[in-house]
Amino acid sequence: MDFDLMITSLPKLLGATLVTLKLLSASLFFGLFLGLFFAILRLNKNIFINKFAYGYSYIFRGTPLLVQIFIIYFGLGQIEYLRTTFLWVILKEPYWCAIIAFTLNTGAYTSEILRSAFQTIKPGIIEAGKSLGISNKVIFYKIQIPIAIRQSLPAYGNEIILMMKGTSLASTVTLMDLTGVAKYIISTTFKPIEVFIVAGGIYLFMTFIIHNVIKYLEKKYSFQQ
């Protein structure tokens, strides 16, 4: 066991953790909106809109995240037309490509989580709102969404942890996140176990924090049924 290496690599790895956290928070932020949007589409009665939203979540949940990143980072640059538009400013950066891929991926999972949360809301609650003369829009924003958020907290907590692990794939498109830096240190020192303990420890610590924050929120927003 090489403790010196563990101590000297810690600051480097902690610096890289910042990149991981940035990727995670950006993709979760955009992914939540995307997921909510597609969950609403899934609840739509129009069969085409419904199928479209289902297709989106099926494709992104059925293929590995690595393929999605590679298509966006290596694949989209191949289209000549894209290079001439303003989108190219975003798509030539691996950082934004990773965020786009993570957003689309987590959006698909989030839409499924939110959809099932919306569907488990008891019809009686919506009917109660209607009989009180509340408009459909207000019922949706003030009654359905808050209940759905509460219902989906445990599943969404898992999704956050999965996404945190998913950000490690950013290292495959040249980004130096926690896993990228860990791999770099391993391949230069050939001490995989020491680096794994430190980097793995940082990941576990983040998992621990996310897990407890979600637990706290669940407790805070729990209601008597």
């Binding site: 942890i161 945190m164 692990k165 998913g166 950000t167 490690s168 794939l169 290292s171 495959t172 896993t179 860990a182 791999k183 391993i186 391949s187 050939f190 995989p192 176990i193 794994f196 980097a199 793995g200 990941y203 576990l204 998992t207 621990f208």
Partner: peptide
Amino acid sequence: GVPELLVIYLFFFG
């Protein structure tokens, strides 16, 4: 709690 990729690197290099 640890990314799959990190576990694979551990096995690959270690």
